[in-house]
Write a protein that binds this DNA or RNA. Structure first.
Lengths: 151, 151
DNA sequence: CTAATCCCTATAAAACAGATAGAGATAATG
DNA sequence: CATTATCTCTATCTGTTTTATAGGGATTAG
């Protein structure tokens, strides 16, 4: 399960990116719309700013706008910021690689091998789909998509 | 990241399933071989027993054996026992479905839609690959497999 | 009877999740 | 210049989860 923090961050990003004419959106407004605790959201927006994804303007009529275009921000990138590595095992992470202390041989580890497959599959999706993709499909819902309710 | 508990459980299962002639394997031996804290492992093996995956014999020369055949036990099943639902969002889980309290419409939720894709991809792997698959490949490593070190 | 094993429950330290709080910095507006 | 709305920063708090550790009880082989 992803954390609330990551979910809130994605909600906020979708809201800011959907803002017509690139107008600024305030934390108060985002919190109200999406029922996110305001002070908690502020921390999250700050993190998004520190990560170079959002830009902010202070003072009256301030708010947040996208710093990078929405089609360069993948779901995977946001998840990594808030929930850490996507990899199911430390020894499978590129960015945050750590050896399993008790592992004899990574090449021969059955667990590593199996999780590598599953990881590759989900990573491929998360790192390719962007905030812009999500918004586009939202406005233009795919017709008769075979909605497969996954378990 | 998966929990240590789940990782230990998978290690233990692979060890018991690999036991020649279906001989019993003791918790002490598994703990020694894989450097797992013994008392912690005992709890895990007990959970595996309660889940109907392992069988145990008590007393001297006791130990654990498979109750169900290794080719019926998927990685996904084991993960669910120890780490809970595989789904990245409660509203995507079949077994442990929960509505997101603040969600207006699941059908129109962009976040749900995107995570459904990623989830489907990884679930497909985790629920299809079994303990037996992992052991088989381990003994018979695929020749010149394009080892793609995922990040 | 003894020793080795599994079985069960309680406890605890550390990390993490999910906030809450309050004060400071900045900018627009009148 | 005072006011007000905003972002910024840091500290704190509470409950849950993780990762064990501990101690004994039950069972069985020999």
């Amino acid at each position: 399960m992803i954390s609330n923090k990551a979910k809130y961050a994605l909600r906020a990003l979708l809201a800011v990116a959907a803002q017509p004419g690139g107008e600024a959106l305030t934390s108060t407004e985002i919190a109200r719309r999406h029922k996110i605790p305001h002070k908690f959201l502020e921390q999250i927006l700050l993190d998004l700013k520190k990560s170079g994804i959002l830009e902010s303007r202070r003072g009256k009529s301030g708010g947040y706008v996208m710093l990078r275009p929405a089609d360069t921000i993948s779901f995977g990138e946001v998840l990594r910021i808030f929930d850490g590595p996507l990899a199911p095992l430390p020894c499978l992470s590129r960015n945050a690689y750590r050896r399993c202390e008790d592992c004899e041989s990574e090449a021969r580890c059955e667990i590593r091998r199996e999780f590598a497959r599953s990881y590759e599959a989900s990573r491929q999706v998360l790192d390719s789909r962007t905030i812009a993709d999500a918004l586009r499909e939202s406005q233009n819902p795919p017709i008769a998509a075979p909605e497969r309710r996954a378990g």
